[in-house]
Amino acid sequence: MSSRAFVFIIPIIVIAIFWAMAKFEYRNNNDPTRKGYFERNGKVLGIAFIALVAFWTLFLVGLPYLYMVVESFHPQLPPIKRGGPDDILTIAQYQSFLLSKHTDSINWLHISSLGFTIFVSIVVTALNFCICYPLAYYMAQTGATQKVRLLMLCLIVPYWVNEILRAFSLRLLLASKGLINQILMWVGFTDVPIDFLGNNTGLYVGLSYAYLLVMMFPLYNAIESLDKNQIEAARDLGAPWWRIHKDVVIPYAKPGIASGCTMVFMLSAGSLAAPQFLGGPRMLWFTAIIYDFFFQNFNWARGAAYSFILLAVCIALVMLLLRLFKVSLGETIR
């Protein structure tokens, strides 16, 4: 039995698990008046629901991932050789990230690209937090309703434009002969145009802009539910404004901050469009490498392996930070 066929057995196992979960749904619930899952929905509908949910999670979410996991442990082979004697399980694709395939020297190009991607994503996350926190605080706590609505609209409307167009228009603005350089030269700030794209300013701006709302909404939601009196109580007890934020607002909004930061970090590390349009020529964005493996070299195995490396590094980092700031994973999706 090939490993690919194995993938298709798992659905049956998962359906069984789902069914068992439904069956024992109220096992730990002591309320006797509460109806069980099948009592509420009937046998036929109940089974249909479970089957549909299982189908959706499996075939549209689970299986493709699983397929990619399996794929990443295979060598790159032309279609005719698939399933043949050369089609063995191997960790060569993962190895190739660390060591160049032929020369056996350390693969600095890809490693530094990953490092760069992670670094930029962290900076973008921090940048977005610094931009969004004051805004979210203003909108949630101090702003007058009318102004807040207007501000919200100004924040949302740009996102009606699609991502590529947005990135491209930023590129036009930031180019050496773009509007911003022209203005800077006209004011006399600089004589030669500043290379915003080459020095990665464009990349930071573009990524921050792309995921601004992703940071904004969790922060806004978290701060909005904070009782105004808490802030006033701290102020009344003599706290200066920064202490109020440090002691009252931020601890309260921590789950929101964590979920905003996690999402911005994950999305920007995995983004494709903004880095391609706005990144400098000196550094490679990691997803661009993955993209090339899939669509230029048709090396799905290595592309998949690289994807999982990125995913693993990101998850590890997020977990580390959540642990560091004492937030549980459950809280972030509160």
Partner: peptide, 20 residues
């Protein structure tokens, strides 16, 4: 003179204790 500088202390209608 702001509330943090006045020699007054306020007890709020809902108390506003810090829950954390």
């Amino acid at each position: 003179i702001g509330p943090n500088k006045r020699p007054t202390a306020l007890i709020f209608q809902n108390l506003a204790l810090f829950p954390l």
